[in-house]
Design a protein around this nucleic acid. Sequence first.
RNA 1: GCGCGGUUAGCUCAGUUGGUAGAGCGCUCGAUUUACAUUCGAAGGGUCGGGGGUUCGAAUCCCUCACCGCGCACCA
Length: 744
Amino acid sequence: MASNGEETRGSAPEIFLKPYNPTEAEPDIYALWEKSGYFNPDNLPKEHQDPYTIIMPPPNANGSLHVGHALFVTLQDLLIRYKRMRGFKTLWLPGADHAGFETQIVFEKKLEKEGRSRFKMQREEFYKETLAFTLENKKFMEGQLRQLGASCDWSRNTFTLDPKIISTVYGTFKKMYDDGLIVRGSRPVHWSTKYQTSLSDLETKTVERQDPLYYLKYGPFVLATVRPETKFGDTAVAVNPRDERYKEWVGKEIEFEGLIGPVKLKVIADEYVDMEFGTGVVKITPAHDPNDFAVAQRHDLPIVEVIDQFGRLNEKCGKYAGMKILEARAATARDLEEKGMLVKVDENYTHNVLVNYKSEHDILEPRVLPQWFVKIKPLADLARKAVEDGRITFVSEQYRKIYFNWLDQLRDWNISRQIVWGIPIPAWFCEYSGGLDRLHAKCSEPIVSTEPVEKCPHCGGIVSRDPDTFDTWFSSGQWPFATLGYPDSPDFKAFYPTSVMETGYDILFFWVMRMIMLGLYRTGEVPFKDVYLHGLVRDAQRQKMSKSKGNVINPLQMTETYGTDALRMALLVGNTPGMDMALSEQKIKAYKLFSNKLWNVARFVLESVNESDLDAKMSDADTALLDEAKALAEDVTKDMENYRLYIAAEKLYHFVWDRFASEILEESKNIFKDGDPIREPSTSNGAGAAAKLSRARLLYEILSLSLKLIHPFMPFVTEAIWQKLPKKDTDILMVARWPVHENK
RNA sequence: GCGCGGUUAGCUCAGUUGGUAGAGCGCUCGAUUUACAUUCGAAGGGUCGGGGGUUCGAAUCCCUCACCGCGCACCA
């Protein structure tokens, strides 16, 4: 200890004797916040008037949180904490998604491992088990969200299967049906023979495959096809109307001996046929090809189904009945060759096939089935307009264009799923719709109702409920207004439209676009004003993370090793909106050093400062330094307002480390060391003592300012330090006032 | 085929309204045992993908080409 009075300086709290240990500190800090009640906007001090709302994209409750979840938690928590400190009435509404089809796949895999199958289970039994599985995951996940520091309002936590959500979804479905926006119709859908359900256009992926292209003799023609096994479902042969080679045949019928008997097919002309491809002749199989279906509609052709729901040829296929698709393909090809009807085979033909987006091995079979479809055009028009006129803004401009481009190409949306795990569709069918329609024409109409239907309203006959469930995205597309209790809840009035939708660009079409369409349709208002889309988190070499590559970064493990703050900073710095980012453990480690730096800065400052110093008069030089810090605050505020979050994070990092710690603090050591007694300014060279007091105050002011600015980025360590400050404007840093006040 | 990005230091990326090229990590050299399970200082490293244009001035705006990536749609 120095002998000149220095021993009286400072009183660093005991905790500062140890290095900062995030793992130890974080749970207590989170408990402190949660206990304060300030996650709930209703508990915030009265001056928090203007609403600021983020609806959390509900994570799928079918697994653990991955680094993508950590990213959205970090970004949204950052925005919420910032706005909360700026005095907004902030609501961040958390939730969990039952995630229909995706969860069912996960759960079915689990059953498979146990040697069980959903097809051997009762519907209710399967539902009950899936629900238990989901709720368990949900609980686990909520703990993980807390671990990441999410300052969301748990009192408003919502599950996608909550009664209030289902009721809203039913209301929307009914309204859409009454408005003619929902139709029941037999149209081509993508059928998964593996999972026994149809999927929407979006839930598909194309993969390139190499398959033989068979050139078959069809009477006078030769035509090319990849699928000879579907020939039993042919209802025409088509050529291009401008094709001189086949002109004479158009409108006529061809007859020839097929594999299972005589075949008679009409020859039609349609622009769909590409003269350059193959021989310029196409067989039309409306039941098993969406393009052929469209042709059939134009030419009024019959639709003959020859493949069943399990991917087997049906009774119309003679001796091939019961064979699986590939089996039948080989068999028909062989038999055609034997009969001299196979002209040649192009073995190296590559084309794209549609597969299940969750499982590449699940090739989707086009089938024509009665399903519920959403007429997309009127909704797409609403959605387009809202972005065109600026009611909705994309933070990264490029997505605006992608969004428009996509809206232009939209097709009607199949929302029926033949799975158990989901919200049942509130529709009933009259059992007599088939037989007695002469008496009751209206009986053939579906009955859509938000309440259970006991009997047919037209004939009083027996009704059966549609066994299908909704596409999850149909209900999650209503999430913003459904969670806020549209239309009567005070929450809806207080917090809708929400401020920003922050989510991954990979679900722009699945989710964001549907929320815009359905939100506008149901409430007449946009569901959110800004759309902030983040990219994928990749590994240090920009590879996609995957279990098989072994390059997955587990966010929860990272928070345990380096602290949540370190993970958060690593996810923020250098992360441009809309772009993929690279993340490495090393980067996280680097920000662990930063939280340590901040801790030690605080330690030094608190050891150098007495509470009584904090009213000291500051010298001009020190005032200038404080002004510099204030200028930084202004700068960072601008960045925050413009969603330049990555820049704000970096600026704070540099200020604290390079300017505050490396320069101002180092320089202060000299000031404090000049031998002038600090506590007795009158006895000695008063100027030196005054300089010390001024400097002490300065350090404290900059520390306090820095903590406020950094808090939204690194909430835990800043709060931990704040709790040790001798003098502060609020007990809890989370609700301290942001140091820049001017009106935006 | 239609659409959208990207190309800047060894690696990963910033670069706001056009004004002398930046960060992190890594590498090299030196200092220090401290508020810092270290830290501090210094150095090196880039014809900003190629070409053309606008401008007093272009990584930035325009045109064009090349390569990489993504989305959508596809010919049986």
